Computed example of a mutant assay.
Amino acid sequence: MGEVRIGVQLQPQHAGEYRLMREAVMRSEEAGVDVVFNWDHFFPLTGDPEGYHYECWTMLGAWAEQTERVQIGALVTGGGYRNPDLLADMARTVDHISDGRLILGVGAGWNERDYDEYGYEFGTPGTRLALLKEYLPRIVGRLQQVTPPPVGDLPLLIGGGGERKTLRLVAEHANIWHGFGDLETFTHKSGVLERHCADVGRDPAVIERSTSWPGVDQAEAFVDAGATLFTIGTSGPDYDLDEVRAALAWRDSRR
């Protein structure tokens, strides 16, 4: 089992002026987080649906220059928004800007407004997963062809919990799995993932288990279930890091 890590998802909604996000990234790195994530949506998911919002990948390029130590990435990129070869090239470029600190997070996508208003086909959960299945080998293949290649072993994170299709893709391709739900759900789906790994001949121990921060009282139980990366989400304009600091104190108390 790997070392426990703490991430923060700075949700790019309701920030007002972008400088508030810039400052939140600086505060997060200074606080000692291991990973700073954003998300890949085009509109706020909570609060005022017409509130301020900023785009994921241009922001990651800025974070790559702004930060020095933390890993950065999207939790997660909408799999159907971009040509997969282009996405791989974007990721490789941000990886170089950050000197090898990018996590490439992808998922099948779920928020219909993102698709409808930006002209992407929303389809069904099945068609979106089929597209992700088609795209993942293209992403991996393009990363092996670009010149120069990624700085190191660019980790691929897949988010989602579908037992038959999504977790199979995790077993086949991912370095990190981000799951959702309570301890019972997380434990069950981890077991499903391990069975998929056995089917494809892959050691499940090479896939890091990631989930949302459950609070100090439950965190150790999630570690016992295999989780080593916990992420706390926070939105603008305040980007309150109090819970992040509590998680960091818990992490440091274990070391």
Rank of each mutant, 00 (worst) to 15 (best):
V4S: 04
V8N: 07
Q9I: 06
H14Q: 10
E17G: 15
V25W: 15
R27N: 11
E29A: 04
D34Q: 04
H41E: 07
P49G: 08
E50W: 10
E50F: 09
G51W: 03
Y52H: 14
Y52P: 07
T58M: 15
M59F: 14
T67W: 06
Q71D: 13
I72V: 11
L75V: 08
V76P: 05
Y81P: 08
R92N: 13
T93E: 11
I97R: 10
R101G: 01
L104Y: 08
A108S: 14
Y118D: 00
Y118A: 03
Y118N: 12
T127E: 12
L132R: 05
V140H: 03
L143D: 06
P149F: 01
P150D: 07
I158P: 02
G161W: 01
V170P: 06
N175M: 07
I176R: 01
H178T: 12
D182I: 10
D182W: 11
D182V: 08
H188W: 06
H188A: 12
S190I: 02
S190M: 06
G191P: 06
G191D: 08
E194S: 14
H196G: 03
R202Q: 05
P204K: 07
V216Y: 01
D224L: 05
A227L: 03
T231H: 10
G233A: 13
G236C: 06
Y239K: 09
L241G: 06
D242L: 04
A249T: 13
D252M: 06
